[in-house]
């Protein structure tokens, strides 16, 4: 079995009494896509925010490679090898695709308290940015400002930026949201490739993509884990069918 990169134990987050995430324990291994599905409001995005440090947990613990990182702020989580994308596109809109990724790659310099040499002369940074852009299939758009791109392409920039920080764990919050069928296929192919050398936690509504990618599937309802395990076993679960998948998957 490959190394466990991410592990949570009884992770919870309450908003004024409401348990958005309620006692979630899960793990994600290297070279594994762990998909998290569930109806709207199930707490999937909140879960990702707890893992990336955007939110602090109310209770429970988070471990990265066995080391506790509970309550760490996003910059620190990022430097421990975690890259994330956002459900709602969250990039530097006026900047070009290249500058978005260059900036993300620049964070790996260690410190950016460098005041005199032009940023574009840091060749390793530019190269890392270009690698991420090519991986995400955006090389033709590299010099375009992100706000001139299509919605689907902007979603790809989200992923490219996460890749530019050279993470080992990717937290992807609905990367396919609002994408056309063809773009979706592209991204699914990309994620398959990325799964060769990353651990991926994938929150997604697109069931075809989920079943094409996931090695482990977790279903969340009302903040809690309803079922978790191999995708086919989860799909067959009576509870899941009732609560979430409905009759369409029950031939």
């Amino acid at each position: 079995m490959s190394e466990t990169v991410l592990e949570t134990r009884n992770l919870s987050r309450h908003f004024e009494g409401l348990a958005a995430v309620d006692g979630v324990s899960l793990s994600c291994r290297m070279r594994e896509v762990h998909a998290v599905i569930g109806p709207n409001g199930a707490g999937k995005s909140t879960l990702v925010n707890l893992l990336s440090g955007d939110l602090r947990p109310s209770a429970g613990r988070v471990f990265l490679r066995g080391e506790e990182v509970t309550g760490f702020a996003p910059p620190r989580i990022s430097h421990l090898g975690v890259g994330r994308s956002y459900q709602k596109t969250n990039v530097f809109l006026p900047f070009t695709v290249f500058e978005n990724c260059r900036l993300a790659a620049q964070s790996r310099l260690g410190s950016s308290m460098r005041f005199f040499r032009p940023a574009r002369r840091y060749r390793a940074v530019s190269e890392a940015a270009m690698r991420a852009i090519e991986q995400a299939g955006l090389h033709r758009q590299a010099d375009k400002p992100v706000d001139t791109l299509s919605h689907g392409e902007q979603r790809q920039v989200e992923i490219a930026m996460a890749l530019a920080t050279e993470p080992s764990l990717l937290l992807l919050d609905e990367p396919l949201a609002g994408m056309g069928a063809e773009e979706s296929l592209q991204i699914v192919e990309l994620l398959k490739t990325l799964a060769d050398d990353h651990a991926i936690l994938l929150v997604e509504h697109d069931m075809d993509a989920v079943f094409a990618l996931a090695g482990t599937l977790t279903v969340m309802v009302n903040g809690a884990v309803l079922e978790s395990g191999e995708p086919e076993a989860v799909r067959a679960s009576r509870a899941v069918q009732l609560a979430y998948l409905g009759d369409e998957h029950h031939e």
């Binding site: 996003p74 040499r117 940023a119």
Partner: peptide, 24 residues
């Protein structure tokens, strides 16, 4: 033009994202 300059302009455009890609 320096890495520092790129960081501060990034902060103006989207500080939240700067933090999530690893900048304190």
């Amino acid at each position: 033009q320096s890495p520092f300059g790129k960081v501060i302009v990034g902060i103006r455009v989207n500080e939240h994202r700067m933090r999530s890609i690893g900048f304190d």
